[in-house]
Design a protein around this nucleic acid. Structure first.
Length: 591
RNA sequence: GGGGUCGUAGUUAAGAUGGUAAUAACGCCGGCCUGUCACGCCGGAGGCCGCGGGUUCAAGUCCCGUCGACCCCGCCA
């Protein structure tokens, strides 16, 4: 094992080209591959920038060549040598540095490596288990390194853009107050205040509003948020938001700023021109056409409401349903019975009872339900759906929510199966005019669809008393390729309106005072109209890198059970720690 | 809380109907090799078949339980 001994790195392993021909350089990095020819040894030396071929040749240093036989994968070495062009037919076009090699004059072994548990290569398929346990090795793999490099560039671009527009990057507390409403909080016991707990922020929502009260006018932060809910491929218990708030603005102002941010981001990081403004769609339209509030607009295949066509049908499933919608897949009649059965199972995930279908043939309709349909109904469907021989139509009938959700996800499934989704396309769309409220069946009360600080549309204020479900919010979501990547709203900025909202949400004035008193008070001291947006940074990076999961763009993510396989968190703590925190664990049985 | 997929050498996988010594590729170890680049050639080592129990003359294979990873529903303002 050698020490650095004053050696200084002169270049990275992704840097050298014919321009440095003849120069003496010093590289440091990890041994990627060793190709030992006995009398000649090639090493691919790797650092985060790339690979450089290093040659141990007897005519340059026989002693180094002999010592180099012991080198193994992932050993850390330093080499000094001369850059030289490779012989013409030895150029490796797959490497950035493939036109040159460095012939070694001297080298040091800085640290030997154990044989890693998996190959440090992109193409190595490794179980998630192992990858997370040895995350520091997983991160050495070029695609993972590149994901994090891109993430860093993206953060840089965001800061650049926003500070250019006069936004201040301000920090907010991580130890804060637990609030009702919303996701489950992560709690932190307070040693100095027995029996009391902080919560980790689900987002810095209230603090950024208080910044507006304080007159900071334009705020942003790339910030960790915490939600103690179950995980998904695109959901981690701690995740990062680009959090933004502005004063003296309306919806248009925030959305225009956000479009500029996204355009700059894609330009800086991917070199892509993104067309702005982004198309806009109302929530109602999104549900009508796509069944979902996060429409993937990369392909058509829209849902059609056919309730009125079949409302008098002798087919009771249709005539008695709250909503009947259809999805015509042109050319889809090639689907086999087995495939249709699989699709039926698929829609059941979303609460569908089954999946009605009709294959349109030249002479007839092949379907288990065709016999229930009158000539008139068939005529109506043919027209409404533009049916042609070779098509297949799928139907969902039942409660609105199930029909839309099931058919919406079926649309995505079919789009994938029939390769209707163009690759390498970024299709943005705003979804606007969200309902302000949602009925919570479990709690038997209205809950805020976005959050309780979202302003209702002025013209809908009266509806809060009469038809709360009809009131629209001054909220907007940004959707990219069927993923919600951001959302925001114009906020309530008067104490009266905020109290009114709590009342609509069934929060007693005492509770509102206890949980949100500081906000209600602050709003009384001259609060400017304000609004903002928050982007899911991890999701954006996932889509920009083409990663399948946000875990691949987070350095040290949690498993689906929210554990860290690297550190083994969460773990038990000593009874002394518990005592200091005034905590006692309950017996397992009691749970 | 629920549904699904998976767990076999270091790794990724194969192992119908239960039946002799559990295969392969890559990796690893040793040897040879001066133009390779996922070098090549020769040889070798390596297994609590996730864990526990059961059925059976016999279990990687069947049954029950359990642990873990992943995908999804619920949940995620």
């Amino acid at each position: 094992m050698d020490s650095l001994g004053g050696w200084k790195r002169t270049h990275s392993c992704g840097q050298l080209s014919l321009q440095e021909d003849g120069q003496e350089v010093c590289l440091m990095g990890w041994v990627q591959f060793r190709r030992d020819h006995g009398g000649l040894i090639f090493i691919d030396l790797r650092d985060r920038e790339g690979l450089t071929q290093v040659v141990f040749a007897p005519e340059v240093n026989q002693e180094a060549l002999e010592r180099a036989h012991v080198l193994r994968s992932e050993d850390v070495i330093a080499i000094k040598g001369l850059v030289r062009p490779r012989p013409k037919d030895m150029i490796n076009p797959k490497l950035k540095t493939g036109e040159i090699e460095v012939v070694v004059k001297e080298f040091k072994i800085l640290n030997a490596a154990k044989t890693p548990p998996f190959l440090i290569e992109d193409r190595a398929e490794v179980s998630e288990n192992l990858r997370l346990k040895y995350r520091y090795l997983d991160l050495r793999r070029p695609f993972m390194t590149q994901n994090l490099v891109l993430r860093s560039k993206a953060a840089q671009s965001v800061r650049n853009y926003l500070s250019g527009l006069g936004f201040l990057e301000l920090e907010t507390p991580v130890l804060t107050k637990s609030t009702p409403e919303g996701a489950r909080d992560f709690l932190v016991p307070s040693r100095l205040n027995p029996g009391n707990f902080y919560a980790l922020p689900q987002s810095p929502q209230l603090f950024k509003q208080l910044f507006m009260v304080a007159g900071f006018d334009r705020y942003y932060q790339i910030v960790k948020c915490f939600r103690d809910e179950d995980l998904r491929a695109d959901r981690q218990p701690e995740f990062t938001q680009i959090d933004i708030e502005m004063s003296f603005v309306e919806e248009e102002d925030v959305m225009t700023m956000a479009e500029g941010l996204i355009a700059a981001l894609f330009k800086d990081v991917l070199g892509l021109e993104v067309k702005t403004p982004f198309p806009r769609m109302t929530f109602a339209q999104a549900i009508a056409d796509y069944g979902l509030d996060k429409p993937d607009v990369r392909f058509d295949l829209l849902l059609k409401d056919v309730t009125s066509i079949v409302k008098n049908s002798e087919f009771k499933l249709f005539s008695s349903a709250e909503l009947v919608k259809a999805l015509n897949l042109p050319g889809g009649s090639t689907l086999s019975r087995k495939e249709i059965d699989d699709l039926t199972e698929f829609v059941k995930i979303y609460g569908a009872k089954g999946l009605a279908w009709i294959k349109i043939k030249e002479k007839e309709w092949q379907s288990p339900i065709a016999k229930f349909l009158s000539a008139e109904e068939k005529q109506g469907l043919t027209q409404a759906l533009g049916l042609k021989p070779g098509d297949i139509v799928f139907f969902q009938a039942g409660p609105k929510e199930v029909v839309n959700t099931a058919l919406g996800y079926l649309r995505l499934k079919l789009g994938e199966m029939f390769k209707l989704i163009p690759e390498n396309t970024y299709a943005f769309t705003w979804v606007v005019d969200f309902p302000l409220l949602e009925w919570d069946e479990e709690e038997k009360r209205w809950v805020a669809r976005h959050h309780p600080f979202t302003s209702p549309k002025v013209e809908d204020l009266a509806l809060l008393e009469t038809n709360p479900e009809k009131a629209l919010a001054r909220a907007y979501d940004l959707v990219l390729n069927g993923h919600e990547i951001g959302g925001g709203s114009i906020r309530i900025h008067t104490s009266e309106m905020q109290q009114k909202m709590f009342q609509v949400l069934g929060i007693e004035p005492e509770e509102a005072q206890e949980k949100f008193g500081f906000l209600l008070e602050a709003l009384k001291y001259g609060t400017p109209p304000h609004g903002g947006i928050a982007f899911g940074f991890d999701r954006i990076i996932m889509l920009m890198t083409g990663a399948k999961s946000i875990r691949d763009v987070i350095a040290f993510p949690k498993t689906q059970k929210a554990t860290c396989l690297l550190t083994d968190a969460p773990s038990e703590v000593s009874s002394r720690q518990l005592r200091e925190l005034h905590l006692r664990l309950r017996e397992r049985k009691e749970e």
